[in-house]
Write a protein that binds this DNA or RNA. Structure first.
Lengths: 152, 152
DNA sequence: CACCATTCAGTTGTGCACAACTGAATTGCG
DNA sequence: CGCAATTCAGTTGTGCACAACTGAATGGTG
């Protein structure tokens, strides 16, 4: 027990450091397009799912409106998307990509190769890591959450 | 290849989400003491290593002075530590715990149990996760970095 | 129908992260 | 020694995160 006592707290730091390190890998890839990593995540959801609401975006990315509202406003200011009030429900806001937002997908291209080169893990280890992270968050494979797609 | 193409980008999101989820677990434990998770990390380093400099703290936690300076200023304002210019090198700033800062260690106590209950991973899985995260950051066991201790 | 609870996006305030920069102190090299 | 390059902490500006709140819209219940 003595050896494992601090392990969980150690892992929290590893997660914290690894997450920041990871967004650091994205930065040089996204900077030329004027995007941050959270903004890129939002775009990935939109590229995959098409129009969504702020609410669904929040569920998918586990972010609240306090984070998303200003972020979406910035993406709108950049001309990547538009926000329109829902016709049936005036409370909701529909997020829709513009042509420029669609085009950005091809401009950015596939970042996979660039990332794989920076991470020294095998595909097996990546799979293993993914599953451990999912479980650590209590999000097992048989999750009841309404979202269908892992965004990025 | 088609299956593994998006895996690395998926993992980046998992890391991002897991890291935020983890600090969310700490929040109710640290809030009563008026601490944030990064502040707690700084205190853990100080509790373990004693006085250090901003520079070493930055190396240990992988944070720059732009992040640490205001954070340390807040911890100083709370009376947990003091900052003094280095006697030999006027550029450096020595961070030293106050009595209150020392005492805080016992007041907070061991968060391990509370955290273990929130994470549904076994000790084996925690070990595995830790090693994968270390490797993913390129920080192998035989690291050349000057820091001696994994902070938390 | 009236009314209260809930949902939704947005705002405000605080505290990280990090790039870019400043200025003082130190180091190294001719 | 003299001076340019480097190191160090701090500041400024931008953009997340998140708690707490606001106000409008909706839904459910009597």
């Amino acid at each position: 027990m003595a050896e494992s006592t601090a392990l969980d707290e150690m892992i929290c730091f590893q997660l914290y450091a690894a997450s920041r390190s990871m967004t650091g890998l994205y930065r040089p890839l996204l900077d030329p397009h004027g995007l941050t990593y959270p903004q890129y995540l939002v775009l990935r959801v939109l590229w995959h799912d098409g129009s969504t609401t702020v609410r669904d975006l929040g569920r998918t990315l586990q972010l609240d409106s306090g984070t998303l509202s200003p972020l979406l406003k910035r993406l709108e200011a950049q001309g990547h998307l538009v926000r329109t009030r829902g016709a049936d429900d005036e409370r909701t806001v529909l997020i829709t990509l513009t042509g420029a937002g669609q085009a950005l997908r091809d401009e950015i291209g596939d970042l996979t190769q660039a990332l794989l080169c920076s991470i020294n893990l095998t595909v097996d280890e990546l799979t293993q890591l993914n599953q451990l992270l999912l479980r650590a968050r209590g999000t097992s494979a048989l999750d009841e959450s309404p979202r269908k797609v892992t965004p990025a």
